[in-house]
Every structure is written in C-alpha cells, then in structure tokens.
C-alpha cells in the first residue's frame, strides 16, 4: 500500500493560531493585506480569535483566504492521501497532507475552498 499518489511543487505554509494549513503556491495570485471581505481561515478551526493586525490575504482571482502568517515552501513534496473517512471535509477541498518543516500540514485547494466557503456564505445568507 502506498500512502502517496502524487507530488506537489511549491506550497505556501500558513499558520492560523496554533494550527497549520498549506495551499498550492500555484493557486495564489498574490499576497495582500486583508480586504475585509475575504474569509478568515481561523473559522475553519472553529477559532473565535479575531484577525491579527499583521494578517495576510492569499489572493486567488476574485476571492481569497486570510491567514495569520505564511511562508513559501518551494521544494517538491510528497502529497499524502486523504483518508477515506475525511474526503467529504471542507467540501472536498482537502487535497492531502505534506510533511514539511518537521510537521504534517493539511493541503487545501484554494479555489475549491473559496467555492466551498462562498457556497457556505451563500447558504448562510439564504
């Protein structure tokens, strides 16, 4: 049994409170200051903490995700598969896990997450 089925080249390692997540570097069109409209990644970890002053916005086309801090990891990394029982999480935006900087990072698809969160926001508005 092989736990990895692909590799990723270049990820953006993000910290949100005490938790971690990673996005593919290719999905990020720019790093900006929070615009007030884009969602805060802390919500995904059910954290109620407010956005820090030095938070950054990972811009992806029209949408984006606000994180506390980020660093770009440009090496090739093995992308470990998502367990079956977790594939439905965040609307299937969870792509897998990478081992980087001595820790395990969940990798999410920024477009899928944006869609999922936009859909959630739309459902919440509806």
């Amino acid at each position: 049994m092989t736990a990895t089925d692909s590799v990723v080249e270049g990820v953006v390692l993000c910290r949100v409170g005490g938790d971690r997540l990673a996005v593919l570097a290719g999905d990020v069109v720019g790093v900006e200051l929070p615009d007030g409209a884009s969602p805060y990644a802390g919500r995904l970890f059910e954290r109620v903490a407010s956005i820090p002053a030095d938070a950054r916005l990972l811009r992806h086309e029209v949408a984006g995700l606000v994180v506390d801090a980020l660093e770009v990891h440009a090496e090739r990394l093995a992308l470990m598969r998502v367990p079956e029982v977790m594939k439905w999480v965040v609307g299937g935006a969870l792509m897998g896990f990478v081992q980087a900087a001595g820790s395990l990072w969940p990798v999410v698809s920024l477009p899928a997450l944006s869609r999922h969160l936009g859909g959630q926001a739309g459902r919440a508005r509806a």
């Binding site: 938790d19 470990m80 029982v85 965040v90 935006a93 896990f97």
Partner: peptide
C-alpha cells in the same frame, strides 16, 4: 496530532503512521 480544517469534532486530528495519514476518531 495535526488538526484538519473544517473537520467535525469527533475527528480530533490526524497523524502520520508508517507513511500513511491516519485520522483519529
């Protein structure tokens, strides 16, 4: 454990074990 974004409360996290990511229930 590594917490997973958007996971329900009973999925408390994951850990890598023998090259595999295992969810903890």
């Amino acid at each position: 454990l590594t917490r997973v974004p958007g996971a329900p409360v009973h999925l408390v996290g994951v850990f890598a074990h023998r090259g595999e990511v295992l969810p903890v229930v």
